[in-house]
Design a protein around this nucleic acid. Structure first.
Lengths: 343, 343
DNA sequence: ATAGTTTAAATAAACGATTTAAATTGTGCT
DNA sequence: AGCACAATTTAAATCGTTTATTTAAACTAT
């Protein structure tokens, strides 16, 4: 590698000061236009590379924004991340991505690393059991945080997420409307705010329709295809013989449908299944999946926007922002057939 | 936010020099053990946060490693990334992830940003059409590059990937062994080294079995579920009536199976389908997918290892490293049925 | 005691940018 | 020619570490 080119290299070869070069490269009107052009040209010719760490040491803005979620490979987060990425890109911010896999420790490490790197801000979908201090660690060190998808009790940080309770009640009502009375809820956990909200939405819908809530119909489990697939066994052996399932998300629903199909039943006819999120995949599953759109792109876009606004000082975001979910009816749900899945 | 705590803050409150504090925090034997303890304790008490940009400005090692692939949301890359992540984590390196979506420009921007941040190295699955200069840009500026999954002509950079030609020939031979003679190849492109290798593997296997190669049986397309789903229409209307399909990857295969099922045929019985990669999903698809394990985790792990070794100076990686794929036979392939998909 | 070692801590010079006050040059006007 | 004023340019201080070099203190052995 050739000797490293820095501001002073350009300055020397051109016989000006580094101050002038610095100013010129950022197009400051303090430098005469002709000088500016000469300097930029020389920078290009020498293959100059801007050293951000040196700059940020002085300016204390790094242009780095951290994003940490449960699992970036999960398509639900994937869609959020895509939206965040395109919003940050527009502002030429670098974003650093990480999974916490619901490990509070891994999450704390990430926040710490980000602080060390001088991150300007962080967007997080907090790990289960995150203590408020872990978020305050960021805030107290001048790195504003924005939450997405999950809330944390007793913390005053802006948050963007879908209205889970309402969303699940949409799905549940849809099934009730089709005549179903024994409806299971499959997948996920009750340890997150999201989980509690969703269960609540399911319970509310049943109550409003005067259907008794049977706790045995709640089958918690991993929020993945694999999880749904494995839940099928439990689902099919429930004594109450449910005729429909409200699933935690599309992945669980697709897994469950696969499991049901494996057992020789036809999802959408013998058993109605709803998903949640409306991933791209939902519409090409067989049968295509009835689900609830959860506004992922909207969540990502507005969370990123809020952070950027806060950083630029143009607007201070606050409070909780709920995106309204919408029903997407497809082929995986149908009217109650009186034989149930006994046939 | 309280006043920022730095080395000198600790030094002053303790009446020692910043040099001593710096050394102490990194556990240097140059500092008396008792002093070391006193300093570490104080650092904790004050909530000191190490400033990596200041440090790396001096040391020219940032602890940052960049990774750029076509699409991090694609599960194929997901599995590679997971392996890279865990390998880098072990060495406490921060990794910065990015998609290039096959835009050479986006990729170049990423490399440039990484250089500005002082990245120590970069792992990339190059975008289609990447000119060698774009990789040399990194190397020339002291940031070593390692390629994964895709090669670039005329460039001497270490690369780790599966043996595509061999892998596809495994799948093709499997189908031939089941009696199939009209075998389509679905999905993907011939614009990448991977694409050319795969097509070659398919052609080789057919030739060896004395089966004529019909270019019309090559149906290129997006490497996604959606792509496979949409290819079904073309596939089913081919005049030669293929009885089997070798798919670009598992996603395409699953999409194709969904499309075939939509048309009323039963994949695995009426049409045999093979995937490629052996994603987690392959085994829970319905029918479960016959596919070729492509060593994603192995690729990720060893690429990361190679980079770290190079950075630590312990070992200089070079050349091309081919991981040997393996067949995974499941339910989506079966013996030729003489009516084909005409029945 | 004294010179010679060892051990412990301090000093000061980088690293590569930014930024502000001050210096320099240039221009038009009387 | 002299002056006010604007347009350019620059010197120097900073940001928070690391590290080679010095200095100081504490032992050792004669």
């Amino acid at each position: 590698m050739a000797q490293k080119v820095k501001l002073s290299t350009i300055a020397e070869t051109l016989g000006v000061s580094t101050a002038t070069v610095s100013l010129a490269l950022r197009d400051s009107p303090l430098v005469a236009l002709s000088t500016r052009d000469r300097i930029k040209e020389q920078a290009r010719a020498l293959g100059y590379i801007y050293n951000r760490r040196a700059a940020s040491l002085r300016t204390s803005r790094s242009g780095i924004i951290g994003v940490v979620v449960h699992d970036i490979m999960n398509p639900f987060y994937g869609e959020i991340l895509k939206a965040i990425e395109s919003e940050l890109d527009r502002d030429r911010q670098t974003f650093i991505l990480s999974n916490h896999y619901d490990s509070v420790e891994k999450q704390r490490n990430f926040v710490e690393t980000l602080l060390q790197l001088g991150g300007d801000g962080v967007i997080m979908s907090p790990a289960i059991g995150t203590p408020p201090e872990d978020i305050l660690l960021a805030e107290d060190n001048g790195m504003p945080a924005i939450l997405i998808a999950r809330s944390i009790e007793g913390l005053d940080v802006p948050i963007f997420r879908g209205d889970d309770s309402y969303g699940i009640s949409l799905a549940t009502n849809h099934l009730i409307g089709l005549g179903h009375r024994v409806i299971a809820m499959v997948g996920g956990t009750d340890q997150t705010s999201t989980g509690r909200d969703r269960y609540q939405g399911y319970v509310n819908a049943l109550r409003k329709a005067n259907i008794e809530v049977d706790p045995a119909l709640r089958i918690p489990g991993p929020r993945s295809k694999q999880g749904g697939f494995e839940a099928a066994v439990n689902f099919l052996s429930l004594p109450q013989k449910p005729t429909a399932a409200v699933c935690w998300n599309d992945l669980v629903a697709i897994g469950l449908m696969n499991g049901i199909a494996r057992a020789g039943l036809i999802p959408g006819r013998d058993v109605s299944v709803t998903g949640y999120d409306d991933l791209e995949e939902a519409s090409i599953a067989t049968p295509s999946l009835t689900t609830v759109w959860n506004g992922q792109s909207e969540v990502g876009r507005s969370a990123a926007r809020a952070l950027l606004d806060k950083l630029s000082g143009s607007h201070e975001p606050d409070g909780i922002h709920l995106i309204k979910p919408e029903m997407r009816i497809r082929q995986s749900t149908g009217p109650l057939r009186h034989s149930g899945h006994d046939n």
